[in-house]
Amino acid sequence: MTEILISILVLIGSFLSLIGSLGIIRLPDIYSRMHAATKSATLGVVFLISGSFVFFLSEGVFILQLLFTIAFVFLTAPVAAMIISRSAHRNGVELWGRTKHDELMESYPEHLEPERDNEKADQP
């Protein structure tokens, strides 16, 4: 019975990780890729680790480190996503051509505005 539960957890987890990586390959610009990398990969890893945790719990071993890792991944994934996308935007990495609003660009002070090759970004 527990084997079925563990199998389901592990299969969902690996599928979500695959979705995350496919998103990193398929999506057009870094900001959209960041969505895939944070949401899907995080939940996928949490599923995989909890599968492992349940397996050892059914064997009678309680591994606290795995629980710590789940909490840690949940806490750090949003921070890493924010810092990476912010540094990309400040370095002038182009947005996808179909992006509608860019209100972050308007918020920068004049002398700090990143340089961006707009002609290249306009092409789809």
């Binding site: 999506l27 509608k100 609003h101």
Partner: peptide, 15 residues
């Protein structure tokens, strides 16, 4: 979004 054959999204940055 990832599995649909054609991407039908319009991203944007909002304050």
């Amino acid at each position: 979004i990832v599995l649909q054959p054609k991407l039908k999204v319009t991203p944007g940055i909002i304050a």
